[in-house]
Design a protein around this nucleic acid. Structure first.
Lengths: 350, 350
DNA sequence: TTGTAAGCGTTATCAG
DNA sequence: CTGATAACGCTTACAA
């Protein structure tokens, strides 16, 4: 118990003044050590650092925040139906923040609301955020990036197209990945390939669709409008979209769904109709969420490195702060991989 | 642009001094208004409040944190394999925090590490957290609750058994829910029912097992040890656990898996062996995660109100702060519901 | 290279 | 009921 009390005091009560006194220097000197000021006698620095280490002193973030006008908090702003993605992104970010002085504060918003911008501005300004990580599709809003800039808040946008400079952007190349996936279907012999597109207002939906069309065009396969069905990135929309595709005659022999949830919907709808997968229908999804391996047959899909992107986004924001030289250029573009599972096979009829 | 600059100033630059000046009172009076001090002339209060409203003034949280020695941040601490649960819990908490001055800061930890306690203590103390919400199985650690108390940090534990007083606990009654689920199987005519238990060190695993055994005992059904298989709450462990159950002769006609991931594993394993669900095998899971409706057949499961519990946990922490009288007693025990889907049917052989 | 004084925006103390 | 004045713990001038 005595030990415990001691721990507390060590952790909580020590101030910069205590350290200054113990080190026989002024508090400003301690402050300089904390902030890695370059103009400091090496010996002085070491002495102070030693004491800091011994005492386990940690500067009070609230006081720093007040004095600096800036907090050591990173915000993650999002409004995305893909729960798995959000969580993976969080994990990636948290991994990068681990053992730093930064913490992550999560902020779902409603991008439909008339006050989103003001909400986010309020959030950033009030908390004096060090930086924000913006997830798609919110990240596609240039005004939001503007806003961050204006408020002097670092930001990184996560998205599927280059919308900003390197320092502010982490990109997955959805188009190429989908093109590869569709080429795979074509190689297997498929010619009538359906697309379940993502919702308007999602850049990823456009990119994936572009990739789809690209691969078909390359192979000289025409794409009647009827082979494209609109989806909302949800399981239910995947079901209804595939039903319209199933009504076609002849039926597509393969379907690329713009995300896994919808791909799971295709599989479900196929079962309802008694359509065998993959014998009568091949399916490819996108995201590589856990559901792809839970269903039968396991779904082929495109895996994108969500956690790595989250990590990179966080590092872009805190990189300079955690003293990694000046030019830590985190990679900005991440490539995806086609994961082949049992939901794809050559078409049966030919 | 001019408008924009104005907005900024309104949002960011106004201080308590400005308000004091405009209202013709001292800053302390304004402070009293902000903090809902009871000893205040009603007229003065109204005048100040009017100005605050007009100007859109928001007190600087960093300064408040420094002066109060306490931040307006709620921490969520967890180390749980159930990703869906974490996200739902986050959503519930965020719902309660919405439109308050509180923000949520997420903190995954490694409960296996020797330094968990110190990590968490550091987190709480350094950030001067207003409160923490502790998710299972971390919430089952009494020392952790102790620690929060010692550091003067409010806390709420989320769990499946009453481990603390009302003010500090939000509980789901897993045992009863599972008992109900198993009774349902028994009513359908099942007598050889297998259990895939959760991992040791999870109170929920014990509660669910207890509920399972309770229902069997009620019905006078004996439970040979061989009908109980150990799982880890993961899909993979569900597969391997069910394989040992499938090797039994006679085979169980139904399996209760202690969570949905493992239930999905059972279904998967059944498919690999050519066992028809639900004709030859009924399955019930726990959690009602999305996967239950993605697989075929959709899985019966137990739904527990994760979001509502997250909301309640958050309200228990901030309740008094957001001025809801003194005794807002949020409900503490939440009941679960059996969700019947197509994975359950009477046993075929009889 | 280091120290002194002033301030960041609130709240607590303690008179009036 | 209200208001000076001093904290809160740290940083940024500005000196020395």
């Amino acid at each position: 118990m005595a030990n415990k009390a001691q721990d507390e005091s060590v952790t909580a009560k020590l101030t910069i003044n205590d350290i200054a006194r113990m080190a026989g220097v002024s508090k400003k000197t301690v402050s300089r050590v904390i902030n890695r000021s370059p103009l400091l006698n090496a010996q002085t620095r070491e002495r102070v650092e030693a004491i800091i280490r011994e005492t386990n002193y940690v500067p009070n973030p609230q006081a720093r925040a007040l004095a600096l006008g800036r907090n050591f908090l990173i915000g993650m702003v999002y409004d995305n139906p893909n729960q798995q993605m959000i969580l993976s992104m969080q994990r990636g970010v948290l991994e990068a923040l681990h053992d730093t002085e930064f913490e992550l504060i999560v902020r779902p918003v409603d991008r439909g609301s008339a006050r989103v911008m003001d909400d986010i501005r309020g959030f950033i300004v009030r908390q004096r955020l060090y930086g924000v990580i913006i997830l798609p599709p919110l990240s596609e809003n240039d005004r939001l990036a503007q806003l961050c800039d204006n408020e002097g808040c670092r930001y990184v946008r996560v998205g599927s197209a280059v919308l900003d400079d390197n320092e502010h952007m982490v990109v997955s190349n959805d188009r190429d990945a989908v093109a590869e996936a569709v080429r795979h279907l074509i190689q297997q012999g498929h010619r009538r390939i359906g697309l379940i597109a993502g919702p308007h207002g999602f850049r990823s939906a456009k990119e994936r669709r572009d990739g789809f069309e690209l691969a078909l065009a390359e192979a000289g396969i025409s794409l009647p409008r009827s082979l494209i069905a609109d989806g909302q990135y949800t399981f239910e929309s995947g079901i209804s979209a595939s039903e319209s595709l199933f009504d076609l005659s002849p039926r597509p022999t393969a379907i690329f769904a713009s995300n896994d949830e919808m791909a799971a919907g295709v599989l479900y709808a196929a079962r309802l109709r008694g359509i065998q997968v993959p014998e009568e229908l091949s399916i490819i999804g996108f995201d590589d969420t856990p559901v792809t391996t839970r269903v039968w047959p396991p779904l082929s899909t495109v895996r994108w490195p969500i956690m790595a992107m989250g990590r990179a986004a966080a590092l872009k924001i805190i990189g300079v702060a955690i003293g990694e030289g000046g030019q830590v250029s985190e990679p900005s573009t991440f490539s995806s991989t086609l994961i082949r599972r049992a939901s794809v096979a050559p078409p049966s009829g030919g």
